[in-house]
Structure formats: C-alpha cells, structure tokens
Write a protein that binds this DNA or RNA. Structure first.
Length: 871
DNA sequence: ATTGTCACG
DNA sequence: ACGTACGTGACAATC
C-alpha cells in the first residue's frame, strides 16, 4: 500500500471558493465565503482520498514574481478584491488550528512549491494528489501524480481528475507538452499572453505534430495555417516568455520535512473555536466531541412514572429558573377540540443536573402535566421556552411578566437570521453542538436545557446591547397580544368570497380568449417565459430583453406598451384578475375555518426592522389601491352585533423622521399644517402654500417617501419618470430646506459604518454588514438600509406599544371588542356595538400616546359594517 | 428550490 | 462604470 499525500494550491482554491459562493459574513462583519468554500472542498477531498499526508501551499504575495513579469509587460493587473484579501490570513490560521502543514517561500510561487513537492514525493514512492483550480498544474500529472480540479456546478462541487493519460485524452498532448501548448495559446486567467492569433485549435495541431515550441520554430516555415507561421515568427519572443511563465519549477530549494505534513486529528478544540467564530454551522457538525467539560447528557432522565413526576414538580417549585418544552404526540393526531390533544409530554430543566423528559401516558395525563407546568411557571422567577406563542394554546399562562421566549430574545440579538431553533441557540450561545440524529427523549432534554441555560446568556446579552427593556416591556408582552389576535381571527364571508371569485373567473375566461385571438395562438399567459416569446418575438413588439432568463413582462414594462397594443392592455387586465382570483378569492377561501373566521399567523421574529409579518394567509397585503381589488374587503365582516373600527397612523414614518432628526423646519411644518406633502412642496419649491400644484405635491410626496427609503437620485427619478439630474436637484433642494434631515441620515450611515448596526428610538438593533463590502452596489444598499431601518423600526416599535395598550385596556375593561388585525400602521378592531365609543377612545388614546415625539402622532379612524367601509 | 410577478405598508 | 428605492408573502411556472 503506497502512502498518499494531498497537495493543495491555497490561493487558487481560495479564489475558486470566493467567486463560486455568494457573499457570507459572520456576526463581526468578516467575510467568510472563501474560507467556507475552501474548507468544504478540503473536507470533500480528505474523505475521498484518505491521505496520510497533507500540505497547503501559498504564494508569499499574490501576485508573485513570475506573474509580475507579464503584469509589467501588459501594464494591467487587477488587485485582489478586499473581501478576498482579508480571508487569506484567516484560512492560514484555521489550517494551523487544524494542525495542517502550510508551506510558503519568498521568491517561489505556490505552483513551484507544489511541483517540487510532487516530484520529491513521487520519487520517494508516494501517490500524489494535487488540488488546484488552475489548469497550468496539469503539466505535473504522471502515472502517480493526479491533478484534481474542483468545479462548482449549481452549488455542488464536482472534481475533474487528471493522470498523465487523462491529460493526453483531453488535450491530445502529454503533460510536458502541455506547457508548450499554453505557451502558444496563452491563458488569460493566468496572465500568460501566448502568441496572438493562435488559439486552442491551432496550438494543439502544432504541438501534437512537433511536441515543443522549439521544434516548431525550427520548422516555422512549414507550419500549417500560414497565419500561425507568420505569428510565431513575429512573436517568437512572446512564445519563449510565455513558456517560461507557464513552466512550473520542480527542483526548487526550500525547507520541508515530510513528517510535518503527517495528518493528525484535524478536529481540534482550537479549530472548533474558529469554526464557531466564523459561524460555519454545517461544518461544526463534523466535530464529534462537543464540549467535553459539559456532559449535559449524563443528567438526562426519562420519566414515565407519576410518583417520580410529582417529586420533580415539587422540587421545581423552588427553582429560580425553569426551562421547558412541550412536544406533540407523534403517534396519532387527535381531534382538535380537546385542549391537550396530541401532547406527548414535556421537557423540564431547572438546574445543570435537573433535566427531564416526562412522557404522557399511563398514570400521567397530558392535561395534568400541563397543569403542573403552568403552576411551576407561575412560581418561578424566570420561565423560559422557545416560541412561546405556539405553546400558549396548550399551556395557560397566568403571569406574563417573567416569561422568557428564547426565540424572541435570539431574534432581537440578530434579526437577520432565518430561524431561531434551539439547536442554533445551543450552538451559538452555549457552545453546545446538538447532533442531528438523536432519540426523541434526548432532543426534548436538550431543548429544555437550552431554554434553561440559554435564557441566562441571552438575557445578559440583551442587557449588554441595551435591549433589555425593549424585550421585557414590548416584545414579551406582545407575544401574548399576537396570540390573542390569532385566536380572535377575522370573520370572512365564504359565500360572498366564492361569488367574487366566480365573477372573476368569467372575466378571466373571456380575456383569455381575446388574448389568444389577438396573439394568433394559444399559450399560457401566466408563464412569463411564454408570454415574453409571444409578445416580443412572435408579435415583434418593441422593448426587448431584461432578465437573465428572457424578456421582462413586468407591469412597468407592459404599461409602456399598453396604449399602443390592445393585447398588452388585455394581458395586464388578465394578470390583475388572475392575481385577485388565485391569491385572494381562492386563496383566502381555503383558510376559512369552521367558525367562519380566518386565524392567520402574526410572526414576531421575521423582519429585519422589527415589523410584524403575516402568513397563512398574509392578511397584511389585502388589496386596497385599486377599486376592483379593494372590493375584496367587503367580505371581511364583523360578527352580528359588532362593527369594525379601523384606525391608522397618519404618515407615522415621516413623523418619526421629524422627531429623530430634530429638524426644526419639518417639526414646525407638522405643528402648523396637516397636509405635510403640500407644505413640503411649498417650502422646497418656494411657492405659497395655496398655490402648490397637484404635480408639485405629488413630487414632494415622492421625495418624502424617498427620504424614508434611503434616498437615491436614481430611485426617485424612476418613481417620478424624470431624469436623474432633476431628481438629484429635488433632493438637494429638500436637504437645503430641511438641513437637519441630511445631518440625521448622514449620521445614521456613519454610525452604522462605525458600529456595524443602527438602532431605533427604543433600542432595537439592525446589523448592516453590507456596509463593509467593497462592492458598490452592496455598499449603497447598506447605506439605504442604515437610513431606513431606524425610521421603519421606530414606527414598528410605536405600533407595538400601541397594540399592547389597546389590547390591555380591552381586556382590563372586560370588553367584548377585540383586536383582529395589524397592518403595520393600521389596527382593525371588531367592536361590540355598545362599546364602539369606548373602543374609539381607546384606539385614539393608545395610538396617539404610544410615544411622546416632538411632533404629534395622529390617526385616522373609521367605522363600518365591513373592512371596505371601515377603511 | 428558484424565479418572476404583484399584493400591501 | 457599477444598476437601485425600504420592508414583507403568495402563487404559478420552471428548474
């Protein structure tokens, strides 16, 4: 059995990984995609090859000497991207932590190091695998030296393997001849010029015939295409230089002890710490020893006897912190009406050594378990669970003050994540890796333990980052408010909805036929791909390409064509109807439950800014702007004896901006006049208030919106259909009128660049990693985010405070009226008729007093027999 | 699973 | 020169 060594071309693989993967950053804003990709490839290779030895070679400086020759010759060379450059030292440190030998030597390229090592190792009887993204290395291939070139195809990495024979099969030349081939055809990727006008075809022909450029030059007159003959004569110096550039030195002198390359255990604690810091969760799973000092599992207890369960509950009464979870019975799904239906048991933890999975069954009734858990929750100083809103259905919680939802806490600490599972919290906050394949009881114990232990860590971090009050005073109580809202649901008239859908169906069918007729063919109008072909190829309409997959058929494109082409107008109309029918008429109907109501979900841990999101179905995007769509709101109705009261904030975001910026002119504007867009127009365009034209008001409104979104002249020009220059002028005039706004927005960006995040008035944070990017686009995005997030986020905070106040008063006063929907700046209450006046009073007071700003908060309020009327 | 489109604030 | 407004979710088609 021959020993095997793997030699990796460090910069080449890092480079491949960098350009093959989307940009990733860890919590510190450090770019990590190249390091991640490198390690992925490394692990894959190690698994496949099972080598005894491994070495990674780096250039001392990239680019190095040999390439500088040509760089000088050519005078151009792009510097390495900053995001990649900063990852080079990181991968070296990580490799060192894994005990992997790295080699670099001043004056020698990685190629030369690899070439030399490959030769030495082969001569000492080893098999060699060279890993590089660079085909130049193919010249090193022999019977025992395999060149492996990883390729990223649709996210997966595939590897092309070349022994000497494979090079011959692929390029028709031997590895040695490959150098001469490169010398002729050049390689732009590696900055080898080659001979002008000789490409792969001609070069291959010449080298297969003469085997080297020198031999070819001796017969230069006979070379086949006369063009090549001429080119080689003229540019012989280039060919020689290219050959020199392309040749890898295999007899370089540098210190290297093979025993240093011997592979040991690469899954060291040090490496684990690095992976942790870099947030490579998938890769962490490879470390089978988790935290040796932290043998949590030794204290797991499975409980099935009632006496033991009773003893545990009694013991838990004195605990200052309880971590818990409730798990569903996996065996069968029981009817919905039983309150404890489908509960398989609970997980409970109230100390490092008190971790239990208590199963329902036998003497232990699920109902009893939940009752006991509820009692514990009342007594303890902190009751910690994940996703509390989800379990409130099963667990009646009486006190909410000391409840701790780890999902919400983790969200506040980093609102950019996609999910907040207990596995994530265990890993990130407790350095605890939880394996994928665990028995159910282990999972339960881990979740309870993580809730117990993690709540402490998260709480400390919330305090450190100034979000403790936001958490206890707003987010935690809001869990219960959102739960109430979900339970309340909103009544929807199924019959009317069905009739509406059927009306749309008729219209859609008619339009469909007309479109087919005018297009001269039958096709799927819903397919952007097919529609694009029909419109822009078959019908030859002007205004071609846009997206990478084909023609854009988006509304703004089609609207430009609609006046001239009736088909296009019909397509737009069809689209509108189809959207209304599929998403709203048919879509909503599927969510109406037996009580005649839709109980959608309101999610608290989704958005980057702190807003609530709505799903299953989304009740925050019910049509309102177009009359036809708006009619859908007529099917949203209150119960008999009730009426809807709808209240929405008037320009809350602009008012927040006025307050946060402290701009005296904007504040004054709000104090004296309610039509803010008109007064903005008057002040920016220097015309008397009463003489502001509709156009001026529209423009001012667009600028106001733009400011809130993180203004850019391009965006504004797009919105107003004006030139960028004009848009830039508007913005300049605006900032001249309200200088405080400019200072505020600039400060937001500066703060974000410095700290890496921005905050709302109530301390909510939003990280802005994009600002560290060297990519103009990404950085610009980061700047807009830094300007928008504090405004949108503060408005979201205020609305949350208002919701808490409204819901609290409705419940305190034992009213029948209930909160049913929140749409960012709007609340909908299903008000019991005798209570309507009180409800209006509560809404007005709680919403307008939710925050004390330098400008008044105002609301518009309406009542109605359905949502259409109340809005 | 991703893309294009479109509904909302 | 780069190519955009901020924040969401659902549906249908296509991969």
């Amino acid at each position: 059995m021959r020993n095997k060594i793997v030699l990796i071309d460090g910069h080449s693989i890092l480079n491949r990984a960098f350009y093959g993967l989307p940009d990733l950053t860890n919590a510190d804003g450090l770019h990590t995609n190249a390091v991640y990709g490198f390690l992925t490839i490394l692990f894959k290779i190690l698994e496949e090859e099972q080598p005894q030895y491994l070495t990674v070679a780096f250039d001392v400086h990239a680019p190095t000497f040999r390439h500088e020759m040509y760089a000088e010759y050519k005078g151009t060379r792009k510097p390495m991207a900053e995001e990649l450059r900063q990852q080079v030292p990181v991968i070296k440190e990580v490799l060192q932590a894994m005990g992997i030998k790295t080699v670099e030597c001043a004056g020698l390229e990685a190629d030369d190091l690899i070439g030399t090592l490959s030769k030495r190792c082969e001569e000492s009887g080893m098999d060699v695998s060279v890993i590089s993204g660079d085909r130049d290395l193919l010249q090193l291939a022999t019977e025992h030296v395999k060149i492996r070139i990883p390729k990223t195809k649709q996210g997966r990495t595939e590897v092309e393997d070349y022994y000497a024979d494979d090079v011959k099969a692929r390029y028709q030349v031997t590895p040695t001849e490959f150098i001469d081939l490169k010398a002729l055809m050049g390689d732009t990727a590696d900055n080898i010029p080659g001979v002008p006008s000789i490409g792969e075809k001609t070069a291959t022909k010449i080298i297969t015939e003469y085997h080297s450029i020198e031999a070819a030059y001796e017969h230069v007159e006979e070379l086949k295409p006369p063009r090549a003959s001429k080119a080689l004569l003229e540019h012989w110096d280039l060919a020689v230089m290219s050959k020199e550039l392309a040749t890898i030195h295999v007899n370089a002198e540098f210190p290297f002890e093979i025993e240093e390359a011997l592979l040991g255990n690469i899954y060291t604690e040090e490496a684990y710490a690095y992976f942790q810091k870099l947030q490579f969760k998938n890769l962490l799973a490879r470390f089978d020893v988790t935290a040796p000092a932290n043998k949590v599992e030794d204290y797991f207890r499975v409980v099935t006897e009632k006496e033991e369960a009773e003893r545990i509950f009694a013991e838990g009464e004195h605990a200052s912190c309880i971590g818990a979870c409730i798990f569903q019975d996996t065996k069968d799904v029981l009817p919905l009406f039983a309150k404890d239906a489908g509960i398989g048991g609970i997980g409970l933890c109230f100390g490092d050594e008190e971790i239990y999975a208590i199963f329902a069954g036998g003497d232990i009734e699920a109902k009893w378990l939940l009752k006991q858990l509820g009692l514990l929750a009342e007594r303890t100083e902190r009751f910690a669970m994940f996703d509390l809103k989800r379990v409130l259905k099963d667990l009646e919680l009486i006190y909410q003050d000391h409840c701790f939802d780890l999902t919400v806490a983790a969200y506040l600490l980093n609102p950019l994540k996609n999910d907040y599972s207990y596995e994530d919290v265990a890993r990130e906050q407790l350095n605890l890796m939880i394996e994928d394949k665990l028995e159910e009881e282990s999972k339960i114990c881990y979740e309870a333990y993580t809730a117990y232990k993690g709540s402490e860590v998260l709480w400390e971090k919330l305090k450190e980052s100034g979000m403790a009050e936001l958490f206890t005073e707003i987010e935690m109580p809001l869990v219960f408010t959102l739960y109430d809202m979900e339970q309340n649901g909103v009544r929807v008239e199924a019959d009317a909805l069905k009739a509406y859908g059927e009306r749309l169906g008729v219209q859609i069918a008619a339009l469909e036929q007309e479109i087919y007729k005018e297009a001269g063919e039958v096709f799927n109008i819903n397919s952007p791909k097919q529609l694009g072909v029909v419109l822009f190829e078959n019908l030859k309409l002007p205004g071609g390409k846009k997206t990478k997959t084909g023609y854009s058929t988006a509304a703004d494109v089609l609207e430009k064509l609609a006046p001239d082409y009736p088909v296009v107008a019909k397509v737009l109309e069809y689209r509108q109807y189809a959207k209304l029918k599929s998403t709203y008429a048919d879509g909503l109907a599927g969510y109406i439950q037996e009580d005649g109501r839709i109980h959608g979900k309101f999610n608290q841990t989704i958005t980057a800014t702190g807003r609530i999101s709505s799903t299953e179905p989304n009740l925050q995007n019910i049509p309102v702007r177009m009359e036809l769509g708006r009619m859908i709101r007529k099917v949203f109705i209150p119960e008999d004896g009730y009426e809807f009261v709808d209240a929405d904030y008037s320009q809350i975001e602009l008012r927040v901006l006025a307050h946060c910026s402290g701009d005296s002119h904007l504040i004054a504007a709000y104090k004296e006049e309610s039509d803010i867009h008109r007064i903005t127009a008057s002040q920016v365009f220097h015309v008397p208030f009463d003489e502001v034209t509709d156009q001026q008001r529209r423009n001012a409104k667009a600028v106001n919106f733009g400011i809130v979104y993180g203004i850019s002249s391009f965006g504004l020009s797009q919105d107003l259909s004006i030139t960028r220059k004009e848009a830039a002028q508007y913005i300049e005039d605006y900032f001249k009128t309200y200088p405080g706004i400019k200072v505020f927005l600039d400060d937001a960006v500066r703060h974000a660049k410095e700290k890496g995040y921005v905050t709302t008035l109530f301390g909510r944070r939003r990280p802005v990693p994009e600002l560290a990017s060297s990519n103009f686009m990404q950085r610009s995005f980061g700047e807009r985010v830094a300007m928008n997030a504090p405004i949108q986020g503060t408005a979201a905070d205020i609305m949350k405070i208002a919701m808490l106040g409204v819901n609290r008063r409705l419940k305190e006063q034992r009213m029948k009226s209930r909160l049913v929907l929140q749409v960012h700046d709007e609340l909908l209450i299903e008000a019991y008729q005798p209570e309507i006046e009180e409800v209006k009073k509560i809404l007005k007071e709680e919403m307008e007093q939710a925050a004390d700003l330098k400008v008044p908060l105002e609301i518009d309020m309406h009542t109605g027999a359905n949502w259409y009327e109340a809005k």
